[in-house]
Design a protein around this nucleic acid. Structure first.
Lengths: 250, 250
DNA sequence: CTATTTTTGAATGATTTTAGTTGATTTATG
DNA sequence: CATAAATCAACTAAAATCATTCAAAAATAG
């Protein structure tokens, strides 16, 4: 039997049963234990599944995909990929800032078991954070109804009370000359301040943000590491002259 | 059986029955007592449930989600009456502070057409406020998951940025000698500071709060106007010696 | 066809999970 | 309040699962 055949079978089994035991797989494929173990290791590396003691289970991401099949726009898939990578940067004990916005929102499920403290100005993040028992500080400030973000002088001031190990920002556009931009100057200002308070700054941007310029400038490219996906080779080579880019592929 | 399978079963049982015994779980999973204990310890660490002597129960938060309707109805009528009166105090142009809690929450519908600015530390208030297009500032601070209130040093500090025309507080008890009290010292502190920043302070308390003493003192009676309902005549006459009481009857 | 690489299965010892036991703690009952 | 019963955390040894290694088998390339 071909390796890829076995992989297909394993993934098929997973789709049906959500979690499977090693024995299950051995019986259906009649391959040896070691072989299946190797398969699982490989598939895990590809983020196709998660190994657990005694077998394997669907990734949280895949689980989401199933539960929101219809809603899963291409965009969301990208954001989840990016968020998944971003979460891998986060370490136990980190204090992190999560910008308001849908991209950073996707990071939260992956923070479940990490011992982190989160500061955010995004009201939409709260349910997800509280649900997972993550210690959360909210910045104060004026509620901007359209995006449910906290902004304004009070928001900026309350940020000053914190220092971050990592800062994750969403943007509306990034451009090699014009840097990172977003429509609302108030929100841009929040992002600037948050950046300045963090040891490491990461900008999360799906492919629709590439080469886009919005109204308010946040920073130049070189002031953050850009995490994106589905970018063309020559675009990438341009970008890498200015900043540290991580391209997430799966 | 896989560990995650058992966990799933346990959570499923919980969803159905709210609280379960260790024996229940042992019978349905046919795993040993020690194993189930380990599972419970693990799941508790993930905030998926709360261990109790002899079994487990849903987290207080989850429980609230389920039973919130019935639990609040008893006092809800009272609270609405009180809130209705409180809102009549509010004038166009006022800047008001709304304490976290279910009583102050009832004020919001009546603020619909008044041109006010609201500051609050209660996350549960947000939906209602935003929905009605009320300009809202949130204090910053640590999120206390149980009550969804913002507390702590950052919360207190961010309050200092404001001055209020009126301040509306909920309490857990008021007593002629011991004043206004509430269980959490952190929340009590927030209420103190908010009071000190307001021209007028109003405490909203339904009849279950009468003569009750809780752990942390907020203020003496005379430092606020008490708004309550369904109070007996001689109790009232005692109270009026110490503070300004408004009794709402309908 | 042979040499080289890749894949496979089996064996090893390490690690994780488990069930049963102990004595301590909590709850129920008279 | 004291006693008994139930529940609990901590420990131990056995079982299951795991990662690693190595040599044989299969696939690939020259």
């Amino acid at each position: 039997m071909l390796t890829t055949e076995r992989h297909e079978i394993i993934l098929q089994l997973l789709k049906e049963k959500q979690t499977i035991t090693l024995q299950d797989i051995i019986e259906t494929t009649s391959a040896s234990e070691s072989t299946i173990r190797r398969d699982l290791t490989e598939l895990e590396k590809q983020h196709k599944l998660e190994r657990i003691h005694g077998g394997a289970t669907l990734t949280e991401r895949k689980l989401q995909e199933f539960s929101i099949t219809e809603k899963s726009t291409k965009n969301l898939q990208e954001k989840i990929k990016i968020a998944n990578y971003a979460s891998s940067i986060v370490q136990d004990g980190d204090c992190i800032y999560l910008d308001a916005g849908t991209t950073t929102l996707q990071i939260i499920p992956y923070l479940q078991d990490k011992d982190v403290v989160v500061v955010t100005n995004g009201l939409t993040h709260l349910d997800s954070l509280i649900e997972r028992g993550i210690t959360t500080y909210l910045t104060g400030g004026l509620i901007k109804p359209k995006t449910s973000a906290l902004i304004g002088q009070q928001a900026v001031q309350s940020l000053q009370n914190y220092r971050f190990d990592k800062c994750f920002l969403g943007v509306n556009g990034y451009h090699i000359d014009y840097g990172y931009t977003t429509p609302d100057p108030e929100e841009a200002h929040m992002k600037q301040i948050a950046s300045s308070l963090a040891k490491e700054v990461y900008v999360l941007a799906d492919s629709t943000k590439h080469n886009k310029i919005s109204f308010a400038k946040i920073n130049d490219l070189q002031e953050a590491q850009l995490i994106t996906t589905e970018i063309e080779a020559d675009d990438l080579s341009h970008l890498t002259k200015r900043t540290n880019v991580k391209v997430v592929n799966n």
